[in-house]
Structures are given as C-alpha cells and as structure tokens.
Write a protein that binds this DNA or RNA. Structure first.
Lengths: 344, 344
DNA sequence: CTGTTAGCGCATTCAA
DNA sequence: TTGAATGCGCTAACAG
C-alpha cells in the first residue's frame, strides 16, 4: 500500500492540509515546514492518488484523442502516427495524460453498447477534461454530442459551428497551388482524384482544384473528377475511371491515392510524367521513395497535433477566454519528378 | 451538472445502495425495482463518475500502452499504427479505456520531472490498472520499475525475467526461414543488417541468421554483419558498409531497412535480385510496393497488440492465476521478386 | 501560516 | 431484498 496524504502528514508532524499545500505548490507555507514535508514525500515515495484528487477538484489532467475508426486509411498512411506524436509530445510537455479512443461506428442493437457506451463512459463519466477530434466525417454524431454535453474540444480539421474550435491546414490554397503548378506546365485536361467527400479536407481540396481552373477560365469537366477514399486502392480505381477521358495530368488529394494512380497508369502502359503528370498531397515519406518521386503538397501534420493540444489546454486553463479559436496553417508545394519539367 | 447516484435514488424512490446494485448488475434486486431504477437512469442520462468509482473500488478500467519515444522508427514504419489498432480494438471489445504514453528518455536535472514524473503520476498515482509495453530496449528502466511497483504488465516482445509476461513473434525462426530461403537459392555470402542490438527483436533475428548459416556449416563472417536501427536511413548506410565485402544476398531485419538497402544497392549500380538478393522482415504494405517487391517475413502485428491486451485483462480479472504467461506467435515467409528465382 | 471541517460520488459492509 | 453508515484520498473553505 502506497502512503497517503494522511501518513505523510503524520510523519512530517503537520496536518493533511499542509501537505496538500506543499504538494500543490501553494505559496503560504513556511519554508522549513515545506522542506520537512518534501523530505517525507521523497522518502516515502508519496504520489497523490489521481482519482481522489479528481473527485475533489473535478478535473483529471487527461485529454482524449478521438479518431473514428471508420477511416481505415489512417493505418496505412503515415498521417496517423505523426499526428499522434505531435499530440503526445504536447501532452507530455504540459503534463497532461493522453487517452486514445479509436471509435468504431459499428451499430449495436442496444444504444447502451458500442461506441455510444464508450462515448458516455469517457465523457459523461468524467474521464477526460477535454478532447481532440481528428479525421471525423463532417456528419459524425460526435460533434453535436460534444457541443450538447459542453465538452471542451478542438478539432483537427474544420467544422462550421460557431462554438467549434479547430486547427486546420489551408487545404484550399494547398490544392490550388498544386493545380496551378500543373497549369503553368501547360496542362489543360487536369483530372482530380478527391478524398471521400463526406470529409471537409476532401471537399476543400476539391474546391482548390476548382478555383485554380476557374482562375484560368477553364470550364469544369465533371468527368475529370473521381472520388477516392484517401487510400491507395481507391486512388487506383479512381484513376482507372478517369483514363477514358484522357487527362494529361491528375491531382490526387492524398499521396497514397497518387501512388495508386501511378500504379493504374503504369498498368495502362502510360508513362509518368511524360504521358500523364501526377501531383499528390501530404508529402508522406513514401512520396519521395516511389518512382517517379511525387510532386506533392506538404502539410505540417505533427504541428497540427501539438497545436490542437495546446489550444485545448489553454481553453481548459483559461475558461473565461471568449470566442472560438481557429488556426489555419499553411501548406507548401514540393516539386519532384512526377509532374515533369521543373518550373520555378 | 450531471445527476449523481443520490439523485437517481431519490427519483426512483430507493436508496443509493439499490441504485448502485442495479448499475453494477447485482443479482438480488427485485425486478420491478430494477426496472424502475433503469428507467430513471435512462431518463436522466445518469453515468457513474469514474473517479468516484475508482476511488471506492481501487480500479480504473484504464490500461496503458507505453512506448519509449526513443524508437523514432515507430513513426515512419507501419508497425506502430497497426499495433495500436490491435490494442485499441481489444480494449474496446473488453470495455477498457486506453492511455497512450510515448515516453521520452530525455533526462532532466530533477528526477521529479520528465519521464520519471510521467511514470510516477501514471502508475503510482493509480491512473492505470495495468500496462502493455512495446518496443522498449532490453535495458529500459521501465521493466525493473514495473516489477518493483508490482504493476501488472504484458510486454510486446520478450524479456527474461521470471515475472515478465509477454507476447512475442518467433523472431528466431522467422529470420532463419528467410536466410534458409536464400541458402536454398544458392547464396553463400549472405550478409545481414540487424536492428539495434539493444533490442531483443534485433538480437533474435540475428540469432536466426546465425542458426541458418550454422546449420549449413557456413562459418560466420563478422564483416557481413552490420547494425542498423530498423529505419530506412540506417539500412542504407549499413548496406554501404557491407558493399566492400561483396555479399550476394542480404537479410535485413526490417522492411524499412531493406528498402534502404535497395536504395544503396541501386546507387552502387547493382541490380536486385540479379547482383544481390534482398529479404526483409515485417511485411509492411510498402514491401509489396517497392521495386522490386520485397521478399519478407510476415508477422501478425495487429494480433500481437490484441493478444497483449487480452492477456493483460485476464491477468487483471483473475489475479489468482499463478505463473507467468507467454505467447509466441509464428511468422510466415512471403516470397516476392527481391530474392530472385522463385523456389518452392 | 496552519489546522479543522466538510464534502467530491460511489461501493460496500452490516443490519434489518 | 433493501437501507443506513462508513470510508476511499484528496482539496477547499473557514477559522484561528
């Protein structure tokens, strides 16, 4: 049995309150007393009991990272681990603990089971002070629930609600830069492979594609737009659907889909970039390893994770700060061989 | 303010104890009463307060997944997300929550800070019922501490201590199969790129390499052994060190290192598999996507994660079960183009 | 500056 | 089968 406040107090010859004050760095404790108490704490290896403390204070110093399991691509794609690292580092830095919840959307007969149960236990059961949500489709029920339950939360991505705080990258501009680059290279029949359109990141990248074409006065050809799922296989089949319409270039909304497109093009006997130029999005490590190396749009994923956590923590610790908080980070075009001639 | 047991009791016209019994599925409650209580619970959306409950019961229904941050390769390599998925799924299935701790080994002046603080808070502070540890070097201080603190834990990998429970893959046999395959193809100058030798997985794969050669009576040539770090870059430089000794084949202890080796070989103007055959380990998705596709040893990573969690939970729920528990899962050789002629 | 008191919300004796 | 009483370990007024 580890020691309790009570025992430390007895050994140090003071009251529980005093020990509590020392532990919590309260200013008004006589230095000698504080030192004596610390000494006992060190010797006994005393550590406050988290549950007892949070029962009394009503906070846990735990934040949750919630990711809807649906998005399987997360596990084949480096996005996930890098985000997690950003999140975990920020938690460590601020002395918060991290609860990871991979929600699965499996519906169960009883709403008192499955994801619902998990959600309820975690959030209404007060395991968490707040949460970061990533990779959720725009109609995910998690958002209305968090809002309704008044849970402090920050989204990685965006969400159009007046009380939704988020950290996002500028997907529209990133995509536009990619397509503009293809336009500068002289392409006019530019296709796009979108992500799943129930996600804002996918919608926004499509919007960037649209804007770039519109700015050049090129009419939108719906046949040059194919929806994928952010994963490789989806990119491959989307590319196959696009082939009959003879694009000379394709903008894939993720590197994994670009890799799939590469595969489909090779299978069709087409050369990249000579016959078809390809541009991806994300700049995952794989992007520079495939043949030909992918031109792509780099996004600061790790930073996204740590900023989300930092924003959340500042929300938790300064609850008075009014208004919503939104951060949009810039992206960067990384030019490699897959789009052909190198242009400034 | 969410409702408490007290309020539910009042609304249902019973005592707190009765509501508690209903919530915890105790048998001896009159069916009508139980129904009435459930009704109130549903209507009020009552959910037990986790901290209060664990203060009273001394368990939290949270398990930790601890990964020493040192192993950076985890973030460029698909091992990590797949393991996590296995871990998370098993947690969900058993209604446990998952705390993720990416320990960094940064030393801080005060031992009351940094990783030490994290460890102490998490484990002595009773946040967790037990932990799963993955990817720790064999001399990681976490193991002695967990043993000393009597924390129930399961390792993904192995650890030679009489009280250490673990779930591992048969690295020795897996590596031996890989090297035996190269031997069957007629190779005699077979090099190996090992993982970091402060990890058992790396040591065991090296041992498998040794065994395969020994079984053929081929003397060990230390110059054909180069230590890597499981990551691509390490594989590349290791391969460069091996080149002067003219191996005709190389067994890399991870796919990422095999990819690095591929790169080094190409840079040296050597063809794979014609000039040098390459075999990897892991069978990550990338293995089948590189050129040439990698022959490799597949290990059931996701299963490793879920079994570790299941073992841990069974330990937690049947504390009486004596003895240590160890599971070793088999691996499978996956033959692709990088090792040349297809045999079998 | 320090001790005393009173909960935080729940599970669990013990009686009834 | 049910209720009353007690305590899990800690923080936070409130006095002094």
């Amino acid at each position: 049995m580890p020691p309790t406040l009570e025992e430390v107090a007895k050994l140090a010859g003071v009251s529980r309150s005093t020990v509590s004050r020392v532990v919590n760095q309260h200013p008004h404790v006589r230095p000698e007393v504080r030192e004596r108490v610390w000494e006992v704490i060190r010797q006994t290896g005393y550590q406050p009991h988290a549950a007892a403390r949070s029962l009394a204070t009503r906070y846990t110093r735990v934040i949750g990272l919630i990711i809807p399991q649906a998005v399987t691509t997360l596990f084949t794609d480096p996005y996930f681990p890098v985000l997690m690292r950003g999140v975990a580092d920020a938690c460590n830095a601020h002395n918060y603990h991290l609860m990871l919840s991979l929600f699965s959307h499996r519906r169960v007969r009883d709403s008192y089971a499955g994801q619902d149960l998990l959600y309820r236990q975690l959030l209404r059961g007060r395991y968490l002070d707040g949460v970061v949500v990533s990779s959720a489709p725009l109609d995910d029920p998690i958002f209305p629930r968090l809002l309704e339950d008044n849970v402090p939360f920050v989204i990685v991505g965006r969400y159009p609600h007046e009380r939704a705080n988020y950290v996002d990258v500028d997907n529209v501009v990133g995509a536009r830069m990619a397509v503009e680059h293809l336009l500068r290279l002289g392409h006019e029949r530019i296709a796009t492979i979108t992500g799943p359109l129930n996600m804002f990141a996918a919608q926004d990248r499509l919007e960037g594609y649209r804007q770039a074409l519109a700015a050049r006065g090129i009419p939108l050809d719906e046949r040059l737009i194919a929806e994928g799922d952010f994963a490789e296989q989806g990119g491959r089949t989307a590319m196959q659907r696009l082939l009959p319409h003879q694009p000379t270039a394709v903008f894939a909304a993720s590197d994994m889909m670009a890799v799939g497109a590469l595969k489909a093009l090779r299978e069709a006997g087409l050369r990249v970039p000579e016959d078809v130029a390809v541009v991806g999005f994300d700049d995952v490590p794989l992007a520079s390893m495939v043949d030909p190396p992918l031109t792509t749009v780099r996004q600061p994923i790790e930073q996204l994770g740590s900023m989300a956590v930092e924003l959340l923590i500042s929300l938790l610790e300064n609850p008075n700060t009014g208004g919503v908080h939104r951060v949009v980070l810039p992206t960067e075009l990384v030019i490699r061989a897959s789009c052909g001639v190198r242009v400034q």
